[in-house]
Design a protein around this nucleic acid. Structure first.
Lengths: 155, 155, 155, 155
DNA sequence: TTTT
DNA sequence: TTTT
């Protein structure tokens, strides 16, 4: 029976993306995303609570992430929960949960813009390094291999 | 900085709720929820893929779950991802991820209706055991202690 | 700048789908979906409040809707808000809002199962007319013309 | 039967909030929010498509909006679709759809920070007018009158 | 371990 | 480990 497994996150990267280029043109990027909520406890003190999420992106999206995201980037993410289960050396059942990203959008925050835009002209500073450069890397449709959103880059 | 950490699930329970009544009137329920997606692989064969989620509900919601949900129940859930981290006996960093439920709605499927409705009249079968009895246990707002959704029960 | 425009609905159809087959193999289906919320007013009386949504589905999804949905069907929907604006006869600006469906999933409820399954054998009643027949008609990606979810039908 | 009616938006305000202070301490704010999507048409040209949403906020949230949001502000919104229906002068049935906001979060973008922070010191420019000042105005719980999120302001 |  |  069909179900729903949907995750929506908005937060900041705790580190630069870790990107691996695999055989057969496959690319995978792993991101660490922090979502912080803030509330008042019973004593009226403001408390911050940060949850860290392991994101996994494939192929076109991984390339976009590699080129545009870095530590501190603020992004909006849609994806689904996906767990790996295995047995460790002691024979214990282990489980690791990550978010398989289906789409993401860059928001403003620190460090928007490509790390090294068109590979040159570093003497001329980017016109608006702090502007709200959003960019959408849309749905990956991983199963059927029609993963062509690399053609969807906004330039 | 405020962020967003939102999970939306729709699936079936793999087991009856596990409910613990703690000191001070606190109640916690743990549910195992399966979300199944179905797709065709490259060869055109239909494949089913099930993800299992650990849900945690507190207080008013836990009581509603205890009374109305059981193995097989189909529910719609909103919540957030919440991880526990600790060190195991070998000093390894461990992490366990669960879904802290903020609201849920009972859908049809098997086993709607209370397990043992007001404790009596078992000779008379429930009129419509397979009907689409939905019920909403709304948001828990745990942090500020205004956790009064027990008053929101639909009866 | 990229934004997010996402709608999630779970409710029941108020009428059978209205389907139009257009030139060039295009198909559009219009659905009326009711989402009902129930709450207690200040006096403690339970109140029901129903919102009606106009859904629009295209092509592969429209065909699935035509074949499987009818009045009373319970569905889960993801889509986006889309408005038409025009001037009426009096020169007033008018606006009509609908939900462009990106994916939907059939839940149980009334009237699951095809209206007329494989066109025959009506003497033999469907084995489980009230069973929880879910079915997923996945995302339509209308803009790029790669609208091939008709190939994704679960049979 | 309980249903789901959920809207998630991320975009920018097209104008300053319109706030009305009603009798009995009630406050309502109306916002115009633009969500823009960007895609390539068949010819490979990038196309932008903007949808305008009418948002309605009440009480504590309305006050937060009044103080912190203005034209250009980028926000993340959760809410639900809510329609008004009436008959116009010609006796035609009319319908107007708006988004009843349940929570919102300020993101960076233009014009974060209060319009007039604690009412003074205008000679000293705000230190970081373009910084990523996020702020969460949480769920409004309108029906039951326990609308105390004014106490939840982050200061 | 659910559901179809 | 992010962000404010």
């Amino acid at each position: 029976m069909a179900g729903v497994n949907k995750v929506i996150l908005l937060g900041n990267l705790g580190a630069d993306p870790e990107v691996k280029h695999l055989e057969g043109d496959k690319v995978v990027a792993n991101l660490r995303l922090a979502t912080t909520e803030s509330y008042k406890d019973r004593s009226g003190n403001r408390v911050e609570n940060t949850e860290w999420h392991d994101l996994e992106l494939w192929d076109g999206q991984a390339k976009v992430a590699e080129q545009y995201l870095k530590k501190g980037s603020q992004i909006y993410v849609e994806g689904k929960i996906k767990s790996d289960t295995w047995q460790d050396d002691q024979g214990n059942n282990r489980k690791r949960t990550k978010i398989r990203v289906q789409s993401f959008t860059m928001l403003g925050g620190k460090s928007s813009g490509p790390e090294n835009p068109q590979g040159g002209n570093q003497g001329q500073p980017a016109q608006n390094p702090n502007s709200n450069t959003n960019m959408n890397a849309s749905s990956a449709k991983a199963y059927d291999g029609d993963d062509n959103e690399a053609d969807d880059l906004p330039f």
